[in-house]
């Protein structure tokens, strides 16, 4: 799998209903195909807007987005989008919903995959009688049954119980393992995505502040504790001084000076995200595969 699943350049979006609030501003990134990507950020950061634009449900006010090399409407047959409110037809039963999925996606529909997901649901039950978690299960069954190349999921796990969450996350990972499906999952609860995602997009203030392979993003940073000292030439994401002690999360520029007497550690993903969220002025970091300005890097990735 090579090429980009999503490539966004200079996306901008303003909602008049939110008092002209700019939701996205000069938002650029690339998501290579075959990745499982966590789309994280605080409430109102623009995660849902970004997903809706990629899915072709919203047209950006500025900028362009290509999905699987096409415009979002042209790519619609090859992707699936599960919106946060899990829209389904309330008067249809579970079985009828899958039937509709098969009719609407005749070229790619995989009934067996869809039925594996809906197995715990009563087939004759109408959608309107299902609980929130059951609806999520049915919506995911529709999305997976379509056998998409790109799966966009907005807060997919929010109303699932722990067992269903584990089981459905397992089903998503199996889909990715077997078919190389690119998956984007938004959430503001990082722990539910940590293990499952190998790619990260942190949206904050309408743009991408961290983008790339999770391992590489973590490895680019170091947690320092020790005596107060000069942190140059490293890029300081966040630093705190308590008495004589300094605690800092830095983006390394070259090796850390051993003579300064600092203890160094690799931050956890959560520490990395929190440090960036607390420090809105820290410069963004996109790894070569996520940066739209490094075109050559994609084929090498």
């Amino acid at each position: 799998m090579t090429g980009a699943a999503i490539e966004a350049v200079g996306l901008g979006m303003t909602y008049r209903s939110r008092g002209g609030n700019r939701v996205l501003h000069d938002c650029s990134f690339r998501l290579p195909a075959g990745r499982v990507c966590a789309l994280v950020g605080p409430n109102g950061a623009g995660k849902s807007t970004l997903l809706a634009i990629a899915a072709g449900f919203l047209r950006p006010a500025e900028g362009t987005v290509r999905v699987l090399g096409l415009t979002p409407p042209d790519a619609r047959a090859r992707m699936a989008f599960v919106a946060q409110d899990k829209p389904l037809y309330p008067q249809l039963t579970v079985t009828e919903t899958l039937w509709a999925g098969a009719e609407l996606n005749p070229a790619s529909w995989d009934q067996a995959t869809a039925e594996r997901i809906t197995e715990p649901l009563p087939g004759g039950a109408k959608v309107r009688t299902l609980s929130g978690g059951q609806r999520t299960r049915l919506a995911l069954a529709l999305a997976l049954g379509k056998r998409p190349e790109l799966l966009l999921l907005d807060e997919p796990m929010a109303d699932l119980d722990p067992l269903a969450r584990h089981q459905l996350m397992g089903a998503l990972m199996a889909e990715s393992a077997e078919h190389g499906t690119t998956i984007v999952m938004s959430s503001h609860i990082l722990t539910e995505l940590e293990g499952a995602c190998d790619y990260l997009l942190l949206v904050d203030g309408g743009r991408i502040r961290l983008g790339g392979e999770t391992d590489d993003l973590i490895a680019a940073h170091t947690l320092l504790t020790g005596p107060v000292g000069d942190l140059a030439p490293h890029t300081v994401v966040e630093s705190r001084t308590t008495g004589r002690q300094l605690t800092a999360l830095v983006r390394r520029e070259g090796p850390v000076d051993a003579s300064a007497g600092w203890e160094t550690a690799e931050p956890s993903l959560e520490e990395l995200l929190l440090a960036h969220l607390r420090s809105p002025d820290a410069p963004p970091l996109l790894t070569p595969s996520a940066d739209t300005r490094t075109r050559e890097a994609v084929s090498a990735a």
């Binding site: 499982v36 996350m169 397992g170 089903a171 990972m173 393992a177 077997e178 293990g195 995602c197 190998d198």
Partner: peptide, 17 residues
């Protein structure tokens, strides 16, 4: 176990396996 089998049971990323 295949990567698929492991990730289906553990919900971890296939690349990790």
């Amino acid at each position: 176990p295949t990567a698929r089998e492991v990730v289906e049971a553990t919900a971890i990323n296939p690349n990790t396996v």
